[in-house]
Simulated assay, not measured.
Amino acid sequence: MTTEVHDPELMDYRAEVQSFRDYLKSSKRVMALCGAGLSAASGLPTFRGAGGLWRTHDAISLATPEAFRINPSLVWQFYNYRRHMALNVKPNPAHYALAELAKKRKDFITLTQNVDGLSPRAGHPAEQLFPLHGSLFDVKCSEFFCDYAEGNNFTDPIVPALALPLDESDPTTTEARKAKELDISDAKVLLPELRLDDLPHCPKCKKGLLRPGVVWFGERLPEKTLSTAEDWIIASKKIDLIIVIGTSSTVYPAAGYTDRARVKGARVAVVNMERTEKTTQGMREGDWYFQGDAGVILPDLLKDEIGELTVLE
């Protein structure tokens, strides 16, 4: 004789999942808004890292046009590291689930704040993916009068001079850790000073340095991406659902998309590892909140639409 175990929390969760699935099935216009939490299951280090440092350098201070103008060698080493780390992890089931949903639903778009290139690598249709902050794997000329731009450049390293050790054999890794452990707040790990001639140069104008195609602090978001997303919203008489994944949606203009969707009648579903005041801000009766790993939850939520997800290793 077996005894059934009834877990009220589990039963409530399954009921919420089924409620979401039923509503998605009846929905026509659907959008997703993604943040860093989408890629957490891939094991990708966050942008700022522990303490907001990269090799004892303030990561935020390296993500500006001024930093690139003053020290392009240091900035390119930082972004070379980020490109390398992103290429050495794989898209997780959440990326694949969104990609499959996009393939099955032409009235579904994904707005992503991530620059890691994992959604394109999961096969997400480009015409339904809007990278609001650009991509680590886009490059463009830094010269004002040159319009050269290249997408999906996955060369690692992008130039031979940036073939620097990035694992434990890199002395700057151990130096940075030691400085952190000793709380040497003003310590600076010295990185190799590369010649300008050895950094990526524009093949079109032959003059300017190439730069990462990400949106740096103080820069405008990509106008074409914003306008295309805006056109989709304006063309929607009704938006049925917005799925907010791995972001608190507190940074504008990304935060405004949830409000825009609500104005068009959308219900909101949140998938997040944490439940905080920020992540629950603005939620209403009839919305869904699924707490946990997006790589586990999202394929389950979308199962009726995309079937059993098969992720090739």
Rank of each mutant, 00 (worst) to 15 (best):
P222S: 03
L191Y: 01
D240Q: 03
I233K: 00
A235K: 15
T228W: 00
T225G: 01
P203A: 12
A235D: 15
C205M: 08
P203D: 10
C205E: 12
L194G: 14
P200Q: 13
L209F: 14
E193C: 00
I242P: 08
A235M: 06
D198Q: 14
P212D: 09
P212I: 10
P200A: 13
S236E: 03
L226W: 01
E230G: 10
V215A: 03
E223W: 00
D183I: 01
L199T: 04
A235Q: 11
L241H: 02
E223G: 00
W216S: 08
C205D: 15
I242K: 05
W216G: 04
A235N: 15
K206F: 04
L221H: 08
I184A: 03
L221D: 00
K188N: 03
K207T: 12
L190R: 12
I242D: 07
R220G: 03
D198I: 11
D240Y: 05
K237F: 03
C205H: 05
K207N: 09
L191K: 08
R220V: 10
P212A: 11
A187R: 12
L199R: 05
P192Q: 05
K238G: 01
C205T: 06
S185D: 08
E219Y: 14
K188D: 02
V214E: 04
D240S: 07
P212N: 09
R220S: 10
I239G: 01
W232A: 04
R211P: 06
V214Q: 02
P212Q: 12
L194S: 14
L191I: 05
G218L: 06
I184K: 14
W216D: 06
K188P: 00
T228E: 13
D198Y: 10
G213P: 05
L226I: 06
W216Q: 05
R195Y: 01
V215E: 05
G213S: 04
T228A: 14
I234R: 13
D197Q: 13
A235F: 01
S236D: 04
E219Q: 07
V189W: 02
K204M: 11
A187Y: 15
P222T: 07
K238S: 13
C205R: 02
K237A: 08
L194T: 15
K238L: 05
V214A: 06
L241A: 03
G213A: 10
L241P: 00
L210I: 08
G218K: 08
L190A: 12
P222A: 07
P222M: 07
S236G: 09
P192H: 06
E193Q: 12
E223Y: 01
K207H: 09
C205F: 10
G208H: 02
I234F: 04
K204W: 04
E193H: 06
P203T: 09
V189A: 14
K204P: 00
A235S: 15
L194F: 11
S185M: 05
L210G: 08
P192I: 12
A187V: 07
K224I: 10
L199C: 11
I233M: 13
K204A: 15
E219P: 06
R195C: 03
C202R: 06
C202F: 09
L210H: 07
P203Y: 02
I234S: 10
L209P: 13
D197T: 13
L209T: 13
L209A: 12
K224S: 14
P200S: 13
A235E: 12
L199N: 07
G208P: 02
A187E: 11
D186R: 07
R220I: 07
A229I: 08
I239T: 01
W216K: 03
I242F: 11
